[in-house]
């Protein structure tokens, strides 16, 4: 069996566990919309451990400065070279915030330059169709954080595949609620998370 397990990255610096309900919420969405064999709960995996290679899709978030250790950089390099996808979300939703400044610097050292991902990229049609690119979050619409609507996600590529997907949109806040509360939403705001997982599993 090839079960998909949602994995959150634990890194040495920063508050890696700032959005603890995101995994459950996305797992719920995966089960809700697809037949993908998914583990009912997520795992936390240290980035500095070889165990990170067991989870080809990793989720990294936080508010605080991110400085990877040498071991974390080494594992991340192997992870990306072998076909893994790292999804990084700025929980501050602030391009002037320390998470954004530090993590982008660290990622570019390991994965190469982060460039705008065209809104026509297959990521936006890997399951649901997002004609305008990444869906906006309530944090953006409410003017929190950097008070910006970020029209693009950023990505570092390996060939034509996304290796690192970087978001300033604060999906970590947007998706950080108990999945049972999805019933209160007229439109499920986690659908883009389904696209992310399906993209990682099929491309």
């Amino acid at each position: 069996m090839s079960t998909f397990t949602f994995a959150t990255v634990q890194y040495e610096s920063g508050d890696w566990d700032s959005a603890p309900l995101v995994p459950a919420n996305l797992i719920d969405s995966i089960a809700r919309y697809t037949e993908i064999d998914v583990a009912p709960s997520g795992v936390v995996v240290p980035l500095g451990s070889e165990a990170a290679l067991r989870y080809p899709l990793l989720y990294l978030t936080g508010h605080l400065p991110v400085r990877f250790t040498a071991q974390e950089k080494q594992v991340l390099t192997r992870f990306l070279d072998r076909g893994g996808l790292l999804f990084v979300d700025d929980h501050n939703h602030d391009v002037d915030g320390m998470f954004h400044k530090t993590v982008t610097e660290e990622l570019e050292q390991v994965a190469g330059v982060l460039r705008k991902l065209p809104n026509t990229h297959p990521l936006y049609s890997s399951f649901f169709r997002f004609e305008d690119g990444p869906p906006n979050t309530s944090h953006e619409l409410n003017g929190w954080g950097d008070n910006l609507l970020h029209p693009y996600l950023m990505a570092a590529m390996r060939g034509d595949r996304i290796a690192v997907l970087y978001s300033n949109k604060d999906y970590s806040s947007e998706w950080n609620f108990h999945p049972d509360n999805k019933r209160f939403y007229s439109v499920d705001n986690t659908r883009f998370g389904v696209n992310l997982v399906v993209y990682a599993l099929t491309r």
Binding site: P23, R32, T34, V198
Partner: peptide, 16 residues
């Protein structure tokens, strides 16, 4: 959080 997969499986209304 352990999701009750059996309960929510394919309950989504929007098809991909």
């Amino acid at each position: 959080v352990v999701v009750d997969l059996a309960r929510v499986r394919l309950q989504g209304k929007e098809p991909g």
